[in-house]
Structure formats: C-alpha cells, structure tokens
Design a protein around this nucleic acid. Structure first.
Length: 253
DNA sequence: AACGGAACCTGAAAGC
DNA sequence: TGCTTTCAGGTTCCGT
C-alpha cells in the first residue's frame, strides 16, 4: 500500500537517484537516496524482497519494482498487502520512526535494567507488551514467543510484575532468539522464510508452531497453544512459570 | 490512558 | 474431488 502518494509521484521521487544507504529501525526500513529523499518500507506480514537479474514476470504479487542502472531489479512482493511504502524527506522519515518506536535491541543496548523499566509501565501480559513497537522495536509474535520460552517466563504474567532477574533473563532470551533467527536466515538458505512462506519445510523455531510437541527443554510437558490479544502464543506450561516476580518479593528495576 | 477486539487483505492448509 | 472454514509473521482504528 502506498501511503500518501500516487505511483507516479513515487516514481518521480526516486527516478535517477542514487541509493546512499539503507537504515533500519525495528521492522521499518529506510532506503536513503541522494538529496534528502528516502523510501520508507514496512513489509507487513507477507512482504519480501526478490532480486532479479532481468525479467520480473515470474514474481507473484509484485507491488513495487526498483530498476537499478546495472539491470538488476529489486521487486517488493506482498500478497496480503499489509506492507507500506512511503516517500519523504530522509530526515523527516527518520525522525518519525525514532519518535514512534521504542529502542531496537540490535541498535542500542536493552539489558535487564532497561527492559525492566520498559515493562514496569504496563500491566498488560508480558508477551503483549514485548510486541508493542512503541516500547520495544522489532519484536513480533515469533520473537516474543521464543524469547519468553528461553527466559522461562509465562506469557500471561503482567509485564510490571517482572523483577530485575526475570527481566535480565528475558533480555538475554530476546537477544539469543534474534541471533538464532539471523543465523538461520544467513546459514541454511533462509530457513524460517521457507518455513513461513513455502510449503512443506521444517519448522526452525523452538516452540512457535509446535503445539502438542514435547518441550525441547524439560522433555516432559507438551507445548500449549493459546490465543492472547488475538495472536497465537506457544509455551511450555511446566517450564514457563509466574515465579520470580515482584509480587513474590523479587527485586524491582 | 489503557485495553480488547475488529478491521484491513489474500492465500494456503485443514476440514467436511 | 471440490467447496467451506480456519488460520497466518503486523498495524491501526474504534469503542469501552
């Protein structure tokens, strides 16, 4: 979906401009062009970039094609059209992103102290709080699910109940989970993209999408799936507990 | 202010 | 086989 501009206007805005660099904050991408112009892209749920040497007719659901001067094509494919493309001044778009998004764990340090302070602001379930882009940028349903399992924290715990120790585990679990996903993407041929977008490939996650399977840690309980704030959540009812919270005397931030 | 729920849209998979 | 239902990685808006 183009935001605030016609296709013609977008083409006019970017045509002939050299790409200066690309920056990212959370799930948002900023393709910075020369002359303080930029393209803001959010892939939504089903958006992906496809690189083609020449012809692009084989790319399904192509919504935007960037033709480079060396003949390559960057095609933005997005079946469900939840993605967003917007043009504007680089400085302006960057400021808007910085303003609307919380810290990005890959750009700035988000340790136990920082995370504890962020979570202390709400009594929503910790999983829901983790996915709120205004408090933390870049964590989606899968990362939140995986991070909570790694940290042995039950997704239903009110965010503000987490003490320093639990928040530290969660911060670490979050980083590990992100790193694992990046490694999987770089290594074995886009492992989780395949899982999510191509049929019949193996599930690369620890608990996400594994309802009914044995917990990979305790190997005794089975992974439970439940709906939370309209999203699927997976957790181990044995490993992931509500202990270590302030309510039980844990340390605050 | 903060929260839950519906809406936005299409395709794949499961169910019948 | 083929039609129908369910579900999906995200965000935003609206009503409570």
């Amino acid at each position: 979906v183009l935001r605030g501009a016609s296709p013609e206007k977008v083409a006019q805005w970017i045509k002939g401009r050299r790409i200066d660099h690309v920056e990212r904050r959370g799930k948002h991408l900023l393709v910075a062009l020369e002359g303080d112009r930029a393209i803001h892209i959010h892939l939504g749920m089903t958006g992906r970039f496809v690189l083609r040497r020449a012809a692009v007719d084989d790319v399904s659901h192509a919504r935007l094609t960037l033709e480079l001067d060396d003949g390559r094509m960057i095609v933005l494919s997005d079946p469900r059209m939840f993605g967003v493309v917007e043009i504007g001044r680089t400085t302006q778009l960057r400021a808007k992103l910085a303003d609307s998004l919380g810290p990005d764990p890959l750009l700035e340090r988000v340790g136990g102290t920082e995370l504890c302070a962020i979570l202390a602001k709400t009594r929503r379930p910790v999983k829901v709080a983790l996915m709120d882009q205004r408090s933390l940028a870049g964590i989606g349903n899968i990362q939140a699910t995986e991070a909570l399992w790694r940290a042995r924290i039950h997704p239903d715990v009110p965010a503000r109940n987490l003490d320093r120790v639990a928040a530290s585990r969660l911060a670490r679990g979050m980083m590990r989970s992100i790193e694992a996903e990046i490694t999987a993407l770089q290594g074995s041929g886009d492992a989780d993209l395949e899982y999510l977008q191509d049929a019949g490939s193996a599930n690369p996650f620890l608990v996400y999408g594994r309802e009914g399977e044995l917990c990979p840690r305790c190997k005794s309980a089975r992974i439970v799936r439940k709906e939370q704030a309209g999203r699927s959540t997976f957790f181990c009812p044995t490993c992931q507990v509500r202990t270590g919270t302030k309510a039980r005397g844990g340390r605050p931030c």
